[in-house]
Structures are given as C-alpha cells and as structure tokens.
Design a protein around this nucleic acid. Structure first.
Lengths: 338, 338
DNA sequence: CTGAAAGCGCTTACAG
DNA sequence: CTGAAAGCGCTTACAG
C-alpha cells in the first residue's frame, strides 16, 4: 500500500501475476478467455498494485471514449443545471462519464466547444444548440449528437424537446379565458425553435379567438435577468400597459417579477404573470407563479438515453422525442381588475 | 469538404503536405523547429482535411490530459451549479476542459467517481468532499486535488473555503443585537468543516453574550428541502418556538421558508429568518431574506486557479484560500414581537 | 486457454 | 531544419 513512484500499468500487473500482458488484459476486461484461477490471480495483483487502467490508452485502441459531451448555454440557469444533472445521472447509470462545456451565457463559441469534443473523441454529444452549425460540424466528424430543448436539424439529428407551440397556446388561452384582452408576450429570441414555437402558440391562441396580434405587446428582450427587468419596466410604465404577461422562459419571468415588485404592481390584481419553465422561486413567492412545468432533469436523462441508443444503432432514422410540459395554474393568474 | 470515410490523422496531413509525420507534428503544435513555408503548408493541409488532433493519443504520449475533474454533490443545488460554472470558466480560460461528476445528492460513491478521474488521467480535480477518503485516494494516485467549500485534509491538500465560523458568528450576533434570545440553528451535518464551523460560530456568538447554548434549539435535519421543511414544521409547532432561525445553508432555508409559509407564520414579525448562502429566490420573496452571501461562481474559479497553479508547482506547501462571505441584511430579520 | 506481435495516433529525443 | 524510430498503455486478431 506504499504509493508507487510510478503508476502501475497492466505490464506490472502481468508480471506480478506471472502471466503475459494479453492474458492480464483478458482477465481484467472479461473479454476473451482466461482460466478461472488465472483470472483471480490477476485481479488480486491488480488490486494489490492499486492498478487503474488508463482510459486514454484503452480508448485510443478502441477509437472512441466512454464519455459523452454535454454543451449547455449557461449552468447558472437552473434549467440547464438540471438538464446537466439529468444527463449525468443517465450517463453514469450506463457507465459513461460526462464532459461538460458551459458556454458561459454565450461568451464562448459553440463550434469551438464542439471541436474540443471531437478532439476528445467522445462517444456522442448532447447539445442545446444556437444554430445548425454545431450539429453539422459534429456530423461531419462522425460524432452522433442529440439536440435538446431546441431543434435546428430535425431531418438529420435526434432531438428531445417539448411541444412548445401547444404549451404556449395553453398558457395564452388560460389568460384569455380569465378575461384578459391585453396579453403581452415577453420573449428573448424567435430564431430558435423554442422562441419561435412559443411565439406561434401565443399567436394561434389569439387568432383562434378572433383577436389580432398586437405587435406592441410582443416585446423582445435580452436574455439575462437584468435585461428582462429593464424591458418589463418600460412595458409596465407604458400607457397601454397589458393586464397579463406571458414570459417565454424562467429568466424572463424573473425579470418581469422583479420589475413588477419594484414598481409596486400587485400580482395578480394589477397584472397576471405566467411563465414558460418552472423554477424553485415560483412556488416560494406570494402569489405563486403559473408556469409550464418542464422536468428538465428528465429532459437531460432522455437526451442521453436517446444518444446512447443512437450509438448502438447508427443507421436508424433520426427521432425526435417529445416530452410532456403541462401547464400548472397557480396564484399569479386571475381575472383582470375590471 | 466531402466528409472522409475515416477521420484524418496526422499521417494524412503529413502526406498531403509532403512532409514527414514528425515535421507535421512540430508544425502543428509549434514545439520544435519547422520552416515558415513548411509550417504554412502543413496548416493548410490540416485545414483542408478538417484535421482535429486526437487528444487521447496526444495525452497518452504526454502522460496526462488537459482536463480537470470536478466532483459536486448535487448540480440541482444552485450553489454547486454556480461552482461548476465558475470552475468551467476558469478552466476554459486556461485551455482546459471540465469533466463533471455529479453525485446525484449522495446516491453515488465519491471514491468511485474519483476512480473515473484517475482512469482518465485528468490533470487534477476540484472536489466538494464528504470525507478525507477522496483526496487520500487521489493523492495516492498522484493526482493533485483541491477541496472546495469544506475541508478535510488541510495539512496535505489545497482548499478554497470561506470563513464559516466568522460569518456564522456575525449572523448570530445580528440576531442577538435585534433582541432575539431564542435563536434556533437548523443544520444538516456537523461532520464536515462547513457544518461544524457554522455551529461553532453560532455557539461562540451566544457564549460571548453570556448565553447558554440550548440543545433543544439546535435542530438536525436531512439535507434536502422536504426533510428541512418537515423538521422546521415540527420546530415551529413546538411550545417553545424560537423567535429567530438561522438556517445553515440555502436548502435548509428554503425548507424553513416553505414551512413558515404553510403554517401562516409571518416573517419577520412571528419569526426572523437568516440563511448561510444566498439564492435567487431570497431576493424575490417578500420580505427578502437576510443571508451570508458566498459568490460561488468565484469560489469555483478560485479552485481551478489554485489547482492549475499547484500543477505548475507540485512541491509548494498546501495552501488554503479563504474567500469573503459578507452578511447581507435584508427584510427577513427584525426585532422579535415583544 | 495463453503469449508474442502489431497497432491505435500521437510526440519526442536522436541522428543527420 | 527535417526524418526515421521508439514508445506512451492498452486491446486484439493470430498462432500455438
């Protein structure tokens, strides 16, 4: 148990057990034949020497590592953190390890992150993409990938998403059913499927009731809390203030909530608020916040599961897994003050 | 630009550029000589072929990878998620990649996670340990590590922590200054330095005022929100209910907050609440919550920085970096109702 | 059932 | 300044 000056290699194990390297390898990996007695002797020797096989050497030979890459936009957002946690769970359960790249909120280039994955010869990657460039790149380098949360390449790439359109429509209808007519949408982008589909769901609900989409009520915001708060503040201060606001994700909802609080707007009497995405704070504040609840841990798990299945069956046609995202009505939405 | 059937290797690049493999390697890595014209020719060839060097092969030769392991308790806790985000930032800035292991709230064995890191021959690991076993193990295998948040092996291992004792004492004194005499401590463990030192800080503050520590007011709880809520509910229902509660971390604070809300206890008039750790919800609820604010992103960054410095200078004595964790007084703490 | 040999894709002394 | 050769630690056909 004295630490060796040098890490033990399989050669050391073989010598200690009095067998050849090949036999030691077979005994340890369980692939190929090895007499029971020999197997035990080798394993004992490995244990004695504190032998830990070099994953790099093993994977170099096998041409691929037992690691999956996960690329998220910003780990500080609980949505992505939960996603990563779920991906980690599923990977661990199947003997894989996770290599995580956090884009730091967009500070880093996606494709650069993908290149690191290719260099590491990961078995595959789970990615929350910002464009089709990243899965294109990975595809060209023959590394399987699955898009998660949003989708850019449905024809060529697996994906795990929720039905954004349907859920957004439900939220909007819920607000309309309560009697709201001036329902604003706070949104940060409509280039990705998430934003676009949520926007479309919002429009569809309005149009189904014979209402026109008022462009002045669809407000674009930056992606962080501070930007959302500033945008919401301006909106709430306008003469034609909406009676209800649908925030297209949890960060935007947080900004809107903070803006309303600072301005002394009372929820839900002055303003109804609904969010796409749940977050812990939404059931802690008073009133609690109506939200589309995505189980992002489950999304992460599903993504890794899809990826690992894809690796086993590379020829299967691309599949898009759609997870449930039910609307959960809470205290922040109510009929408008007459 | 047609995808090759097989990934390009340095041999392919060398052939395309009309040089030897060694020269191609030198031209690409920038180590060793290569004529300017040759260097350009090789780089052009590499680009044409979409060559991405195999990190495994490179690191196998170099005996260590350019990746650092990060082991956290539970990514769903914003404290750890932010820590991981900070670690990722710092690593990326210095050309390292992060391999993340999430223990899933304790479901997985620490040492097992550490073994995977050893197998990958990571350059080092940042770990939020549960005992000294993990850094022992890593040390035996010659992989440098830094303990973060809590510390088990100050004599042998680098660490990045905050002054728990001092901050906990400040919180308790703040509560005592407001006039509270029945100040409870809600805590999940006292085996780690975090819990023990926070407990000690609490005791010190009490004793400095000539008050005895009432064992009935020091309540142990499980580590998740549900357990904390249940424990707090029992505490709040007891005849000798405290007038103030100090929760030893953000999860416990969340449980206590939810318990108080469910029981109709008004904060701060019925109960003052203070937390060790800040969390987004603490500035969203009414009233906002008094907390010891740790910048966990900064903690993660500092940990990776320390680790990388350690790698460059393996012989230096172990160092413990102590970061500031100021008490931020908000609305949840006030004098007790007479 | 076991061992000698080749090879995964790189880097790095060492000659030239 | 460049190339041939060795070797990092494994696994895997291939003989025996």
């Amino acid at each position: 148990m004295i630490p060796p000056e040098k890490r033990a290699t399989i050669r050391d194990v073989a010598v200690a057990a009095g067998v050849s390297q090949s036999t030691a390898s077979r005994a340890l990996t369980g692939r190929g034949y090895a007499a029971e007695a020999v197997r035990e002797r080798v394993q004992e020797a490995a244990h004695q020497l504190g032998y830990v096989p070099d994953a790099m050497a093993r994977h170099l030979k096998q041409r691929v590592s037992r690691s999956v890459g996960v690329l998220v936009h910003d780990l500080r957002n609980s949505f992505y953190a939960d996603l990563a946690a779920g991906a980690g769970n599923a990977a661990r359960a199947r003997g894989y390890t996770i290599t995580l790249t956090d884009l730091g909120g967009g500070a880093t280039d996606e494709v650069e992150g993908a290149e690191a994955f290719v260099a590491m010869r990961v078995a595959g990657v789970v990615v929350t993409p910002g464009s089709a460039a990243i899965t294109d790149y990975l595809g060209r380098h023959r590394v399987p990938s699955v898009e998660v949360d949003r989708q850019f390449a449905p024809a060529t790439c697996d994906a795990v998403v929720v039905d954004n359109r349907k859920a957004a429509r439900e939220v909007t209808e819920h607000l309309l059913d309560l009697g709201h007519r001036r329902v604003a949408l706070l949104i940060d982008e409509t280039d990705w499927t998430t934003g676009r589909e949520r926007y479309e769901g919002y429009c569809t609900a309005l149009e189904a009731r014979g209402l026109e989409v008022d462009r002045g009520l669809v407000v674009a915001s930056g992606w962080d809390v501070a930007a959302a708060k500033a945008t919401a503040t301006t909106l709430f201060a306008s003469p034609a203030r909406p009676t209800a606001l649908f925030a297209a994700n949890n960060v935007l909802a947080e900004g809107a909530w903070r803006a309303a609080a600072d301005m002394g707007l009372h929820i839900p009497s002055d303003l109804s608020l609904a969010s796409f995405d749940d977050a812990p704070w939404m059931t802690m504040v008073t009133p609690t916040v109506t939200a589309v609840v995505q189980d992002s841990v489950a999304v992460g798990e599903a993504a890794v599961t899809r990826l690992l299945d894809r690796i086993e069956d590379p020829a299967a046609p691309p599949r898009t897994v759609v997870l449930a995202a039910p609307l959960t009505v809470r205290g922040s939405t109510a009929p408008p003050a007459s």
